[in-house]
Protein backbone atom coordinates (compact mmCIF):
# COMPACT_ATOMS: atom_id res chain seq x y z
CA UNK A 1 0.00 0.00 0.00
CA UNK A 2 2.73 2.41 1.00
CA UNK A 3 4.72 1.40 -2.06
CA UNK A 4 1.86 2.47 -4.33
CA UNK A 5 1.60 5.87 -2.74
CA UNK A 6 5.29 6.47 -3.10
CA UNK A 7 5.22 5.34 -6.71
CA UNK A 8 2.40 7.74 -7.50
CA UNK A 9 4.14 10.56 -5.69
CA UNK A 10 7.39 9.99 -7.52
CA UNK A 11 5.58 9.94 -10.86
CA UNK A 12 3.86 13.20 -10.08
CA UNK A 13 7.10 14.73 -8.93
CA UNK A 14 8.99 13.76 -12.04
CA UNK A 15 6.31 15.16 -14.32
CA UNK A 16 6.14 18.42 -12.40
CA UNK A 17 9.86 18.84 -13.00
CA UNK A 18 9.16 19.34 -16.70
CA UNK A 19 7.63 22.71 -15.93
CA UNK A 20 4.36 22.12 -17.65
CA UNK A 21 1.51 19.66 -17.69
CA UNK A 22 2.74 16.87 -19.92
CA UNK A 23 -0.74 15.70 -20.75
CA UNK A 24 -1.82 18.78 -22.68
CA UNK A 25 1.59 19.58 -24.13
CA UNK A 26 1.10 17.37 -27.18
CA UNK A 27 -2.11 18.98 -28.36
CA UNK A 28 -0.92 22.55 -27.85
CA UNK A 29 2.28 21.98 -29.73
CA UNK A 30 0.68 20.41 -32.75
CA UNK A 31 -1.89 23.22 -33.00
CA UNK A 32 0.79 25.85 -33.25
CA UNK A 33 2.65 24.40 -36.15
CA UNK A 34 0.88 25.04 -39.39
CA UNK A 35 1.10 21.81 -41.39
CA UNK A 36 1.85 23.73 -44.56
CA UNK A 37 4.77 25.51 -42.93
CA UNK A 38 8.00 24.00 -44.31
CA UNK A 39 9.43 24.34 -40.82
CA UNK A 40 7.24 21.47 -39.70
CA UNK A 41 9.85 18.76 -39.51
CA UNK A 42 9.93 18.12 -35.82
CA UNK A 43 7.49 15.63 -34.40
CA UNK A 44 5.48 16.28 -31.30
CA UNK A 45 8.08 16.98 -28.65
CA UNK A 46 5.99 15.83 -25.77
CA UNK A 47 6.90 12.67 -24.01
CA UNK A 48 4.27 11.13 -21.86
CA UNK A 49 4.84 10.92 -18.18
CA UNK A 50 7.68 8.55 -17.43
CA UNK A 51 6.35 5.32 -15.97
CA UNK A 52 8.80 4.68 -13.17
CA UNK A 53 9.22 1.11 -11.95
CA UNK A 54 10.33 1.34 -8.38
CA UNK A 55 11.52 -1.99 -7.12
CA UNK A 56 14.03 -0.70 -4.63
CA UNK A 57 13.98 -2.80 -1.51
CA UNK A 58 14.87 0.28 0.51
CA UNK A 59 11.17 0.63 1.10
CA UNK A 60 11.07 -2.76 2.73
CA UNK A 61 12.40 -0.97 5.78
CA UNK A 62 9.11 0.85 5.99
CA UNK A 63 7.13 -2.29 5.34
CA UNK A 64 8.80 -3.94 8.29
CA UNK A 65 7.88 -1.06 10.57
CA UNK A 66 4.32 -1.29 9.31
CA UNK A 67 3.94 -4.99 9.99
CA UNK A 68 5.22 -4.52 13.49
CA UNK A 69 8.12 -6.91 13.18
CA UNK A 70 10.91 -5.83 15.45
CA UNK A 71 13.63 -8.43 15.64
CA UNK A 72 15.26 -6.96 18.67
CA UNK A 73 12.17 -7.44 20.74
CA UNK A 74 11.04 -10.90 19.68
CA UNK A 75 13.46 -13.77 19.99
CA UNK A 76 13.37 -15.71 16.75
CA UNK A 77 13.91 -19.43 16.98
CA UNK A 78 16.43 -20.81 14.53
CA UNK A 79 15.32 -23.24 11.88
CA UNK A 80 16.73 -26.73 11.77
CA UNK A 81 18.68 -25.76 8.63
CA UNK A 82 20.28 -22.82 10.35
CA UNK A 83 21.31 -24.96 13.33
CA UNK A 84 22.82 -27.59 11.07
CA UNK A 85 24.66 -25.01 8.99
CA UNK A 86 26.05 -23.39 12.09
CA UNK A 87 27.46 -26.72 13.15
CA UNK A 88 29.18 -27.05 9.78
CA UNK A 89 30.59 -23.55 10.11
CA UNK A 90 31.86 -24.29 13.59
CA UNK A 91 33.63 -27.32 12.21
CA UNK A 92 35.74 -24.91 10.16
CA UNK A 93 34.42 -25.84 6.74
CA UNK A 94 34.73 -23.04 4.25
CA UNK A 95 31.62 -21.72 2.56
CA UNK A 96 33.53 -19.88 -0.16
CA UNK A 97 35.75 -21.24 -2.91
CA UNK A 98 38.15 -19.04 -4.87
CA UNK A 99 39.27 -19.23 -8.48
CA UNK A 100 42.15 -18.14 -10.67
CA UNK A 101 41.68 -15.44 -13.25
CA UNK A 102 39.33 -16.38 -16.11
CA UNK A 103 39.31 -19.90 -14.73
CA UNK A 104 36.66 -22.31 -13.54
CA UNK A 105 38.87 -25.14 -12.35
CA UNK A 106 38.52 -26.79 -8.98
CA UNK A 107 41.82 -27.77 -7.34
CA UNK A 108 42.43 -30.47 -4.76
CA UNK A 109 41.89 -28.25 -1.77
CA UNK A 110 38.63 -26.98 -3.19
CA UNK A 111 37.52 -30.52 -4.00
CA UNK A 112 38.00 -31.43 -0.35
CA UNK A 113 35.80 -28.53 0.71
CA UNK A 114 33.11 -29.66 -1.69
CA UNK A 115 33.29 -33.18 -0.32
CA UNK A 116 32.74 -31.82 3.18
CA UNK A 117 29.64 -30.09 1.91
CA UNK A 118 28.52 -33.20 0.07
CA UNK A 119 28.71 -35.19 3.30
CA UNK A 120 26.82 -32.47 5.09
CA UNK A 121 24.06 -32.60 2.54
CA UNK A 122 23.82 -36.36 2.73
CA UNK A 123 23.49 -36.14 6.49
CA UNK A 124 20.79 -33.51 6.18
CA UNK A 125 18.46 -34.79 3.50
CA UNK A 126 15.96 -31.93 3.81
CA UNK A 127 18.47 -29.21 3.02
CA UNK A 128 18.95 -27.70 -0.43
CA UNK A 129 21.90 -25.66 -1.63
CA UNK A 130 22.28 -22.56 -3.74
CA UNK A 131 25.68 -22.01 -5.32
CA UNK A 132 26.35 -18.37 -6.19
CA UNK A 133 29.05 -17.78 -8.82
CA UNK A 134 30.97 -14.53 -9.08
CA UNK A 135 33.73 -12.95 -11.14
CA UNK A 136 36.06 -9.98 -10.69
CA UNK A 137 35.33 -6.72 -12.47
CA UNK A 138 37.80 -7.03 -15.32
CA UNK A 139 36.48 -7.71 -18.79
CA UNK A 140 32.90 -7.37 -19.90
CA UNK A 141 29.88 -7.73 -17.62
CA UNK A 142 27.96 -10.26 -19.66
CA UNK A 143 30.91 -12.52 -20.23
CA UNK A 144 31.58 -12.38 -16.48
CA UNK A 145 27.98 -13.39 -15.83
CA UNK A 146 28.62 -16.51 -17.91
CA UNK A 147 31.96 -17.12 -16.20
CA UNK A 148 30.37 -16.88 -12.75
CA UNK A 149 27.82 -19.47 -13.78
CA UNK A 150 30.52 -21.82 -15.04
CA UNK A 151 32.36 -21.58 -11.75
CA UNK A 152 29.25 -22.51 -9.81
CA UNK A 153 28.55 -25.30 -12.30
CA UNK A 154 32.03 -26.74 -11.73
CA UNK A 155 31.24 -27.02 -8.05
CA UNK A 156 27.84 -28.53 -8.81
CA UNK A 157 29.50 -31.09 -11.04
CA UNK A 158 31.52 -32.41 -8.11
CA UNK A 159 28.40 -32.58 -5.97
CA UNK A 160 26.77 -34.42 -8.85
CA UNK A 161 29.28 -37.22 -8.37
CA UNK A 162 27.55 -37.80 -5.02
CA UNK A 163 24.12 -37.77 -6.60
CA UNK A 164 23.24 -34.41 -5.13
CA UNK A 165 22.63 -32.40 -8.32
CA UNK A 166 18.86 -32.27 -7.83
CA UNK A 167 19.27 -30.42 -4.57
CA UNK A 168 21.64 -27.81 -5.96
CA UNK A 169 20.59 -24.55 -7.63
CA UNK A 170 23.11 -22.40 -9.52
CA UNK A 171 22.89 -18.61 -9.73
CA UNK A 172 25.47 -16.28 -11.25
CA UNK A 173 25.97 -12.66 -10.27
CA UNK A 174 28.91 -12.09 -12.57
CA UNK A 175 30.84 -9.04 -11.38
CA UNK A 176 27.74 -7.39 -9.86
CA UNK A 177 28.21 -8.37 -6.19
CA UNK A 178 31.84 -7.83 -5.29
CA UNK A 179 32.86 -8.05 -1.67
CA UNK A 180 36.15 -6.19 -2.08
CA UNK A 181 36.50 -2.85 -3.84
CA UNK A 182 40.10 -1.73 -4.21
CA UNK A 183 40.36 -2.36 -7.98
CA UNK A 184 43.52 -4.44 -7.62
CA UNK A 185 44.49 -8.11 -7.45
CA UNK A 186 43.93 -8.11 -3.70
CA UNK A 187 40.24 -7.43 -4.21
CA UNK A 188 39.90 -9.26 -7.50
CA UNK A 189 41.10 -12.46 -5.91
CA UNK A 190 38.41 -12.22 -3.22
CA UNK A 191 35.71 -11.54 -5.78
CA UNK A 192 36.44 -14.57 -7.98
CA UNK A 193 34.42 -16.94 -5.86
CA UNK A 194 31.56 -19.38 -5.45
CA UNK A 195 29.50 -19.18 -2.27
CA UNK A 196 27.57 -21.99 -0.59
CA UNK A 197 24.17 -20.82 0.60
CA UNK A 198 21.91 -23.33 2.26
CA UNK A 199 18.16 -22.92 2.39
Amino acid sequence: MTKKIILLTSVIFLSSCAGTSIQDLGDKFLDLINPSDPAVEVEDLSDSVLMLDDESGSFSGEDLAESGVDSSEQSRTQTATEVAVETLEDAGVSFVLYFSYDDTEIDEEATQVIIDHANFMRNNPGISLKLEGHADERGTREYNLALGENRALSVKEVLGLYGLENRVEVVSFGEEQPIAFTHDEDSWQKNRRVEFIYQ
Binding site: M51, L52, E55, S56
Partner: peptide, 13 residues
Amino acid sequence: AQTVVKSSYPILS
Protein backbone atom coordinates in the same frame (compact mmCIF):
# COMPACT_ATOMS: atom_id res chain seq x y z
CA ALA B 1 18.23 12.48 -16.97
CA GLN B 2 15.19 10.51 -15.80
CA THR B 3 14.86 7.26 -13.92
CA VAL B 4 12.89 4.49 -15.60
CA VAL B 5 13.57 1.60 -13.22
CA LYS B 6 14.80 1.80 -9.67
CA SER B 7 15.88 -1.35 -7.85
CA SER B 8 17.88 -2.76 -4.97
CA TYR B 9 19.09 -5.45 -7.34
CA PRO B 10 21.61 -5.17 -10.17
CA ILE B 11 20.52 -3.93 -13.60
CA LEU B 12 22.62 -4.42 -16.73
CA SER B 13 22.69 -4.14 -20.49
